[in-house]
Amino acid sequence: MQGNEAVAEAAVKAGIKFYAAYPITPASEIMHVMAKKKDIKFVHAEDEIAAVMMAIGASISDGKSMTSTSGPGFSLMQESIGMATMTETPLVIVNVQRVGPSTGMPTLPSQGDVLQSAYGSHGDRYPIVFYPNSVSEMYKYTIESFNAAEENQGPVILLSDGFLGHLYETVELDKIDYKVKDRKGKKFGTGNRHYTGLISKNGIPMTKDTKVYREWIKKVKERTEKIAKNYAFYEYLENEKSNTLLIAYGITSRVILPLKEKYSIFRPIRMFPVLEKELKKISEKYKKIIVIEMNDGQYKKEIERVLKREIESIPILGGSIHLSEIKDKLK
């Protein structure tokens, strides 16, 4: 199965009821598979803003929903991510990354939207972001994305890239372990709740009340911190002989895997909130930490921020990645 197909099939397993999207390479196959699912409401929307807004409407009124896109479409969705946050609406957004800015290098793979996935929308938010590195992981973490969205009552971003999205691998579906969290709460229509992007209390807008805002944002922050603990996914390959720790995620972590013979490797799967506690513990004994990623050091900045020490960066830009190039840079 292909990475993108795995996302679609897993969404069905997770109990998705509504899906809307707008075509974009390298994410379109998710849409192609969803289009054929007769039991799922499917919309080929007029643009990514409509797609994500429909998904929000469907999630509020009925149940689990998802949309998928690549960088340009993800940029269009940013305002709506804020709306899902403010209205506390579970929602899964998949971003199969390609090289940007703008139309960039259509449609070579990239990891250039890592920071955008956490910081792209305006205002303070605490999103949960996952980034798997294989087709079977795409399956598993699609389901975990739905679970986290339900539990945290908000949007979850699932990152992929052009490589992973188009990668074909054998997947043993019955060997993937997961649990599905069901939708809870009152049926839409039976109450008088006002779902609004305005800060509000009991459905009444409180747009001049600093206290209400502070209480709300604190609640969201603490809830995310607490719930993210249940989703602290990562992989750590320790090499006793190494005093250097390589950090890589997504497709990059696949490419550098042979380097485990020489180095220790840490691979975050939950990208945000950053695995601060785990990283602090693991990184202690390493003299050098190097982040290898297909962008100009985006996640390196995050690691620097949480570890408060200098981190080295190997940026792999322009849509192609070779182990030999990385090895040269490590010398």
């Binding site: 509504f18 809307a20 409509a50 429909m54 929000i56 409407g57 709306m83 039976t190």
Partner: peptide, 16 residues
């Protein structure tokens, strides 16, 4: 139960 969305996006929200 009512929804107040984003500027310009009431229609797709309602269609969802």
């Amino acid at each position: 139960d009512t929804i107040h969305g984003l500027h310009g996006r009431a229609i797709p929200l309602a269609e969802g």
